[in-house]
Design a protein around this nucleic acid. Structure first.
Lengths: 283, 283
DNA sequence: CGGATGCTTGATTACTATCAAGCTAAGTGG
DNA sequence: CCACTTAGCTTGATAGTAATCAAGCATCCG
């Protein structure tokens, strides 16, 4: 009970494991500063010897409670954010006022990059759970790039990675069915949890059906129905926010629910004709 | 008329103007090298005095014929590309083999950025028309960034701009109807043409309906029907690839075709009931 | 002048959104 | 501690948008 975010997350992700200690009591004892090496590790940037040695450079942590806003659209940009713990969402709002969730950053993820171009954030970021976030002043970051050439390359690499992520979102929204999108969403979450050392099979969603729907370009009802369908098919078991993945591979390769639907034309035609006939009989 | 692409494009964009000579002498007299300043201008990066003065740094041009591939997926990355003239498409292919068009680069656009992260291109780029493209070796580019700090900031800015572009694609695919997507596509093209000094009202599409559909997450039939609908509504006039925008503002604010569709429930209910009744009468 | 591509249009299907209740879980205040 | 409220989730019925299937037409090219 003395814990905090990590504790707050851990038991939710691995409800099996009952006895996780030292949940990072950040709210009392939380880290306030991180070294350059720690930030690199979080971002999965291989740190060079020079970077490891650099202990002068420190980055500040900030804590947010669930529901709090980290930055808003239009707010002047000067820092990038790296998630140390907790879950967030980033949201863009288009000219018509349509809200669209763009990402669900979690530990090790970078956000705020869209502020670089216009010196203002183009999206807003909101904490879904209590969060611990590291502030990375952009100026400081690029200045460090000059001192450490490999670091500079890595910065470009991280930005490129974000771009690729967006590109695959576009591909998904442009070409996958509702079921395939939800399946991919689960697979992605699962893989990200696994990479962080949590269970990739059992975890708790941190977002509402509405938020999932916004992220995937679907309504909350379609998300709910699709999860229920996966449940009935035995691919997952789902109870509210709790997910248990039963057949990872089936999810990974799923394209759409009805197997092929290509070779049963006549049957369908007959069936619908019959249905029509009976309808008319009734009427 | 000693120039080249501009001449080459112009007649297609402004078919009104019948007498443009010397199309595309680029194949004979095309520029082979550009200075750093010229590249900055193309990319809309404000060049500093130092950049303007730098005439040692030169970037090579390469010409491609329509249909030729500039780079493929998986090919080792080492250069970024800046379009000097012509039109291209970039395509990503997902795990299931779905093809998705991600962008239609034209003069002043940068592509190849997705190769930075994994040192391999994640997408492929194909020329839709004859093209003149400038090769920007990434190493050289970042090295220049060190010499010219404002240039480095601009590089980050350009990458951030690309990210924002992708984000708005996601928002569009996630929340707009077919008509709204096609409308936005036309508006975007129009604005880009205008910025380049071409007519934003009358222009020729360089891509097929299929390619537009792939870009917008729609089928080619839906694209065709939507253009026809806009035509009938008087928003545009369309004949094959030739587009003439009649009501730019209507396109810009269009959300979906049927005006509101919110306040005519009863009418619709009655109508469909009537239809059903007559159907049954027939049967 | 075919043949091939690409475009349009029509008919039909089906997927997903919308509308509409219930239901569950988690607080909240008496 | 227990109604009571509220936000979130599920499920059903229905409707509408866009995909699919299917011709026919236009344009371009060799």
């Amino acid at each position: 009970m003395l814990h905090s975010e990590f504790a707050h997350n851990r038991p939710m992700n691995t409800p099996i494991n009952g006895a996780i200690p030292a949940d990072a009591a950040w709210q009392r004892t939380g880290k306030l500063w991180s070294s350059l090496k720690e930030v690199c590790d979080l971002l999965r940037i291989p740190p060079s010897a020079a970077v490891i040695a650099d202990s002068d450079t420190q980055f500040q942590h900030v804590q947010f409670k669930a529901g709090q806003r980290i930055h808003t659209i239009g707010q002047p940009f000067d820092v990038l954010y790296v998630v140390n713990s907790g879950f967030l969402k980033t949201v863009m709002i288009d000219v018509f006022g349509n809200e669209q969730i763009l990402s669900f950053p979690m530990k090790g993820d970078l956000f705020g990059v869209d502020g670089i171009h216009g010196r203002r954030y183009e999206s807003e970021a909101v904490a879904l759970t209590n969060c611990d976030v590291i502030l990375v002043p952009f100026k400081k970051f690029t200045a460090l790039g000059k001192a450490h050439p490999e670091l500079e390359a890595a910065i470009y690499g991280v930005m490129s990675r974000e771009l690729i992520r967006e590109q695959s979102m576009v591909t998904m929204l442009g070409s996958l069915s509702a079921e395939a999108r939800v399946a991919r969403f689960l697979v992605n979450l699962s893989e990200r949890f696994s990479e962080l050392g949590y269970s990739g099979k059992q975890f708790n969603l941190r977002m509402t059906r509405h938020e999932i729907g916004s992220y995937l370009g679907l309504t909350l009802e379609t998300v709910s129905r699709t999860l229920s369908a996966f449940n009935e098919m035995g691919l997952i078991s789902v109870d509210q926010r709790a997910i248990d993945i039963k057949d990872f591979n089936a999810l990974k390769t799923l394209r759409r629910l009805p197997p092929s639907r290509t070779r049963n034309k006549e049957k369908q035609a007959l069936a619908s004709a019959a249905a029509l006939a009976s309808q008319r009989a009734v009427a």
